[in-house]
Design a protein around this nucleic acid. Structure first.
Lengths: 344, 344
DNA sequence: CACCCCCTTGCATTCGAATGCAACAAACCT
DNA sequence: AGGTTTGTTGCATTCGAATGCAAGGGGGTG
C-alpha cells in the first residue's frame, strides 16, 4: 500500500486524483477526456472542473501504451538541409500540430547516423516518419515490419515503390533551360552537387536532356557541395578552365549566390551582361536586392502539407497503396539571367 | 486469455517474446537492457541474441511510464527565429541526442500558442524544456509545480530568477559602438526591433549607454521587424527623415543586409564610404562577399551546449539553484563599417 | 403497471517494462 | 562439513489511462 509518494508526484495529478475529487471512477475521467466517450454532460462538467482545479492533463505516455498510438511523428533531416531549408521544418511541425500530433526531431550529420536515429524512433513508437535522408533497403524493410508508414521528402525510396513527395527536379531544370535557351543562351556551364546526390543528378539530367533536344551543349561541369563557399570556388574553377559559357546552372541557390559573388566581385564580370547565373530552390536570400536570382522555386508549403497528409492517411489506414506525389517547380525570373517570356 | 493479436503487433516484439525465446523471465530481459542490471554475462548474451533475432527494441513509452523519465526534451522556438537561426536547432538536437534523449519540437507563430504548446509538452511528460519564447509568470509557475526544469534561451525569465543562457546583448552592442566611435563614427542612426522585443531593447540600451558615456548622440531611430525587407524599409525612412548619420546600427543581421542593399541599390550610396552599417548575430549570409557585414557574433554553439548542459544538470538534480549564464558576443569586423583595432 | 431499451457508470483488465523482494545456487570462509 | 556471503534469477507489483463487459437507472411504450 502507501501507494503514492506525494513528493515525487508534485504537480502531476492523475486520473485517479481527478476521479476522487469529482466523486466518480477513473474510467469516467478517461471517458470525459476522450472525444465520443460515454458520459453525461453533467458528469463531464464536474470532471472537467475537478481536472482544472488540479491542473490535470492526460498522460500521453500512458495513453500511448494502451492505444498503441504515440501521437508522435518522427522527422529526420540532414543537418545541412535543415540549415538551408528551415521552412521545411517549420511547415511540417505546424502541419503535424494541426492534426494533434507532435514532431520528434532528429538531425543527422551523415548517413551512418540514420541507423541509430531509426532505432530511437522505433523505441518511441512513432506513428509515422517523414525522412529527408537516404535509407538502405534493409532500413526500409524495417518500416514494413513495424507497419509504420514513412514518407520520403524530395527523394525516391530505394529499391521500392514507397511513398514520397518531391519536386520534379528534372522537369523544373528542363523548363528553366528551355527558357534560358529561348532568351539566347547557348553555352551552358554547370555547378553540380556532390557525388551521390540524387537530387543534383536529377537536376543535371533534366538540363542535359533538354539541351540535347535543343541541340545545345554543356561546355564545362564542376561539382560543389551545396554551400555558398563552394559556389565561389566552383565558379573560380570554371573560369580558370578557359571554356566559354554564357550561363552557369547551379544545383542550388546557395551555390548560385556564391557563383554570382565570385563572378562580380572576384572576376569583375557583370551579371547577367557577361555571364548569367541560375539556381534551384527559391530560397529567401535569392530574392534579396543584391541578387535577384533567376531560379526554380520549390513549393515548400505544398510539399510539406502533402507529406503530412499522406503520412496521416497511412497512419489511419496502413493498407493504402504507396504513392509518389510529384510537384512542379515554379520558374522565378530574376535579374541574374534573362528568360524568354513564359508564353514562348 | 487470447492475449496477443499477432496481426496488430506485427514486428513489435516485447520483452516477453524475447524472454520466451531466450528461456528466461521478462525481468531478466529488462535487466539485460538496463546498464548495471544484475545479469550474468552468459544470460545477457543469450538475451541479446534472442532480442536481435526478433528485432526487439525496448519500448520507450512503457519504460517512461514506470521510470517517470520520458527522455524527451521540449524545444519551443518561435517560427521566425527558427527561420533565421536554424543552427540553434541543429546544435541543440545534436547535443540532446548525445545525452541519449530526443527533442520534441514545437514552433509557435505567436505568443498565444505557447499555452497550447506547454499543455502538449506536459502531457508528453517531457523531462525538461528549452524555450526561446516569452512566457507568462503563470506559465512559469507551472514548471515549478511540475518540477520540470526550463532553460530560457536568449531571454530572461519573467518575474523570477530562473535559468537562462544568453548573449550579453547590451555589452556586445556597447563594445561595437565603442569601436565604431574610435574609428571616427559620430552620428548614429538605429533600426531597432519590434515593440516589446526584449532582446532588441537590450541591444539598443547598450548602444545608448555607451554613446552617453562617450558623449555621442543618436540622430534617428526607426523600428523594424527583424526581416530583411523591413531593413530596406527602415533605411528608407531614416534617409527620408533628413537627419544626418554616418552609421546605422541594426538590431539584427537580416535587417542590416536589407539596409545595406537599400543604401547601395536604392539610394546610390557607398557602404561604408557614405554610410556604415552594422548588425548583430553573426549569421552566415553576413559573411558573403557581397556584404561582409560588421557585426557581433553570438557564440551559438556555446549557447546551445550550455543550455543543454544546464538542463540535464537540473533534470538529474531538480534542486540546483537557478542560474543565468551570460556569454560575450564576438565583434566581427567586416567591410560594412570600419572599426578601430581591438587593442584601442 | 410491466417490459424493454438506451444511456451512464463502475469494475476489472490491459498495454510493456522496471524493480523490491525473496529464493536459490555457487563459492568462500573457518 | 557447516555457515555465510555474493551473485543471479523469477515473482509480483507498479506506472496512468483506455476499454469490454455488466450492472444500474431513467424514460418510453404497449
Amino acid at each position: 500500500m502507501a501507494p503514492r509518494d506525494p513528493d515525487r508526484r508534485a504537480g502531476r495529478a492523475t486520473s485517479y486524483d481527478v476521479a476522487k475529487l469529482a466523486g466518480v471512477s477513473q474510467s469516467a475521467v478517461s471517458r470525459a477526456f476522450s472525444p465520443g466517450g460515454s458520459v453525461s454532460d453533467e458528469t463531464r462538467e464536474r470532471i472537467l472542473e475537478a481536472a482544472r482545479s488540479l491542473g490535470y492533463r492526460p498522460n500521453a505516455i500512458a495513453r500511448g501504451l494502451i492505444t498503441r498510438r504515440s501521437n508522435l511523428v518522427g522527422l529526420i533531416l540532414p543537418a545541412m538541409a535543415s540549415l538551408y531549408y528551415p521552412e521545411i521544418m517549420v511547415e511540417i511541425t505546424a502541419e503535424v500540430a494541426r492534426r494533434g500530433a507532435r514532431v520528434l526531431l532528429i538531425t543527422v550529420e551523415n548517413p551512418a547516423e540514420v541507423r541509430a536515429a531509426l532505432e530511437q524512433l522505433w523505441s518511441f513508437q512513432v506513428d509515422g516518419v517523414i525522412a529527408a535522408t537516404a535509407m538502405t533497403a534493409e532500413q526500409l524493410e524495417d518500416f514494413e515490419l513495424h507497419r509504420t508508414p514513412v514518407i520520403f521528402y524530395n527523394r525516391a525510396p530505394p529499391h521500392h515503390a514507397g511513398n514520397s513527395v518531391a519536386v520534379d527536379h528534372a522537369d523544373g531544370e528542363g523548363r528553366l533551360v528551355d527558357r534560358l535557351w529561348q532568351a539566347g543562351h547557348r553555352r551552358f556551364a554547370m555547378i553540380t552537387g556532390p557525388d551521390g546526390s540524387e537530387v543534383a543528378q536529377q537536376r543535371a539530367a533534366g538540363a542535359r536532356a533538354t539541351l540535347e533536344r535543343l541541340g545545345g551543349c554543356i561546355t564545362a561541369v564542376t561539382p560543389g557541395d551545396y554551400r555558398y563557399e563552394s559556389g565561389i570556388e566552383a565558379f573560380g574553377r570554371l573560369w580558370a578552365g578557359g571554356e566559354q559559357f554564357d550561363v552557369v546552372l547551379c544545383a542550388n541557390d546557395a551555390m548560385a549566390l556564391g557563383a554570382m559573388d565570385a563572378a562580380r566581385l572576384k572576376h569583375g564580370l557583370k551579371v547577367p551582361e557577361d555571364v548569367s547565373v541560375a539556381g534551384f530552390d527559391g530560397f529567401n536570400a535569392g530574392r534579396w536586392l543584391a541578387y535577384q536570382l533567376t531560379t526554380v522555386r520549390q513549393p515548400i508549403g505544398a510539399l510539406a502539407a502533402a507529406a503530412v497528409e499522406m503520412l496521416f492517411a497511412r497512419i489511419e489506414d496502413p493498407d493504402l497503396a504507396p504513392e509518389r506525389r510529384l510537384f512542379s517547380g515554379e520558374i522565378v525570373p530574376g535579374r541574374s539571367a534573362r528568360l524568354a517570356p513564359s508564353g514562348g
